[in-house]
Each structure stands twice: as structure tokens, then as C-alpha cells.
Design a protein around this nucleic acid. Structure first.
Lengths: 162, 162
DNA sequence: GTCGATGCAAACGTTTTGCACACTG
DNA sequence: CAGTGTGCAAAACGTTTGCATCGAC
């Protein structure tokens, strides 16, 4: 059961709220709940999922408010969003940033430590003068189970990804 | 000036049309023009851009037809689409498949040879049992010019990516 | 003549925006 | 009480779909 007062979550919420205050932004119920939701979230959440979550505590928080607040928090650097496939974007705290490996078949999202990309980053920097950002878009592909399923079902794989 | 008859383009068009025929699909003007457009394209095209291009030769080809034909050609493995950022998807011949490095600031798309990803692919396969597909989504980041611009404009960079 | 492909319009899912009102500071 | 944040409705955007008609085979 999520904590009540003075929990680590509440502390984190306050830190972010202070950032908002110091930029002249106002602290509102929806913002408080949104930040708390993101801190407590174990996984990446779409705006819709956040809305569903917040609705349980405050029924009238509108999706557009969530989008606006997410944008605001993203401007502050507190929140990041990623595109894990064709559907909606997902949002999470920047402190939880990492790369993603997303299966094109089953949709599972594997979190990949940043180190795994460092060699690639270096090489791309040298050869293409380009600084990669491995967080914003997922690296798509196929997870082990789906890969073997594919191999057994359709040996002369015709490539149907979408 | 693009070639006329018996050009390499036309030959390629016919090859694809044969694939369509052999699957029981029909050969139509829009398909012929679409394939030709993709073969002649130097860069990745969005559905809209393709529509604009085809419109010059046949004014009545509807966007939905283009989407349907692109889907069809994708099923056949002739066409692939990629997501190069937040906007619409881009389409291109599968024979022209390669990775993309897309600048989040200026939007420039650098084409990256597949080899550059092979080390990463191997590592991810070993550590995460995951087969990456470096084509479908772009690798986002910042190109050299935008990176230095960023560094000079905003030394204590606050991270504003979208 | 059959059936697949098309044009059109309308729906879709996600995100953004314009406005009047509500609330924070 | 000033002005930011909000709910709501509607638009925007890229894409998909239903349907009657058209055209390839």
C-alpha cells in the first residue's frame, strides 16, 4: 500500500513542486497528483493511463490538463517521454531514464542500461558527428520468445512488421 | 530529367508489379506510379509527399489509396516505413533500408550503414535475448552543428527535447 | 462478369488549442 | 485581485475504414 505522509514519495513530490514554484508556476491538485503518480509508477505510463490513475483520486482532471502539465514538467527537465512503438507516447521521470528495447510482436519493453549504447554512441560521434539520445525513441526488434516463434512458424519469413 | 521508357526505373517497376500479379493483386495506375515514385525518390517520403508527387501525374489518387498500397507493398516486403521523429511515418523501398540518425533540433536525417549497429546488436542479443531492428525507428539525437549551437547558447543545458 | 482497387466521407486515436471560468499566490 | 491553470469542446493531425462505384482480369 502506497505511503501516506512524509514518505519518500511525498518528499519527491515536494522537490518537484518547489521547482515549479521557483519558476513562477502554481501548485495545483492535478500537478501534485500527477507528480506523485509518476514517482510511484513502476513502468512507463501513457497520458491516458495517467488520467485513469488520477481519476481515482480526483475525478475531474481532464486529459488536456495532463498533457499540459506533462509538457510543463518536461520543459523543467523533470519528465521525459518516449515512443515505444506505434501507439501513444509514454511518460516517466527523467531520473528513471534509460533505453528501451521494444518487441514489435508482443510489445514487451525491456529496459536497457545506458552503458550498452556507449560504444555505439562513441562510434556514431566519430563517424557521423552525431550525438545519439538512446532514450527518446525505443530500439525496436524482437524479443527471444517472439523471435523463436517467428522462426518456427514461418521459416521463410516474409517480414510483416507493423 | 527522369528517364522515359526502358529505363532502370521502369524495369524496377515491372519487377514489383510482377510480384503483385503473382499474388493475385491487380496492376493499377496508382500502384504503377507509386512504385515509380519510390524508386525515383532520393529520400524518405511521407504518404503526403508521395500524394503530392503522384498528383502531378494523376490528379485523382487519394491519400487513402496511397496508404492502402503502401500497406500492401509493405506486406510484400517491397516497402518499409520508418518513424523519423514526431511527425508522419516515412516510406521507402526495402532495398534502400538502413538506419537513421535524426537530429531532434533541425530534423536532418543522416543515413547510417547497418554495420555500425552490429556490435550493439550482438551485445543486446547476448545480454537481453533481443534481436534489434535498427531500421524501423530512427536513432534520435543531435547533429554536430546543432550540438555546438546548443553548447554555446545554453552552457548549463536544461534539456529541452521534443 | 467477377472481384479487387479506388474515391470519398467519415471515423479513428492521440494530441493540441481557444475560450470562459476557477483557483493559487 | 491578477493572472495562471483548468474543464470543456472542438480542432488538428496522421491514419484507417465503410461503402458504393469503377476498372483489371
Amino acid at each position: 500500500m502506497p505511503g501516506e505522509h512524509r514518505s519518500a514519495e511525498n518528499e519527491g513530490v515536494e522537490v518537484v513542486l518547489d521547482m515549479l514554484r521557483s519558476e513562477g508556476n502554481r501548485v495545483t491538485t492535478s500537478r501534485r497528483l500527477l507528480i506523485r503518480c509518476l514517482i510511484e509508477a513502476k513502468s512507463h505510463l501513457t497520458a491516458e493511463e495517467i488520467a485513469d490513475d488520477l481519476e481515482r483520486r480526483a475525478p475531474d482532471i481532464h486529459l488536456s490538463t495532463i498533457y499540459r502539465n506533462l509538457d510543463e514538467l518536461e520543459r523543467l527537465g523533470v519528465v521525459s517521454h518516449s515512443h515505444l512503438g506505434h501507439g501513444p507516447a509514454t511518460y516517466h521521470l527523467s531520473t528513471k531514464v534509460h533505453g528501451h528495447l521494444v518487441c514489435e510482436d508482443c510489445g514487451v519493453a525491456i529496459e536497457a542500461p545506458d552503458e550498452i549504447f556507449s560504444q555505439l554512441a562513441l562510434e556514431i560521434m566519430e563517424k557521423h558527428d552525431f550525438t545519439i539520445d538512446t532514450h527518446h525513441f525505443a530500439v525496436l526488434g524482437r524479443c527471444g520468445p517472439c523471435q523463436s516463434l517467428l522462426a518456427s512458424t514461418d521459416p521463410a519469413s516474409k517480414e510483416t512488421s507493423r
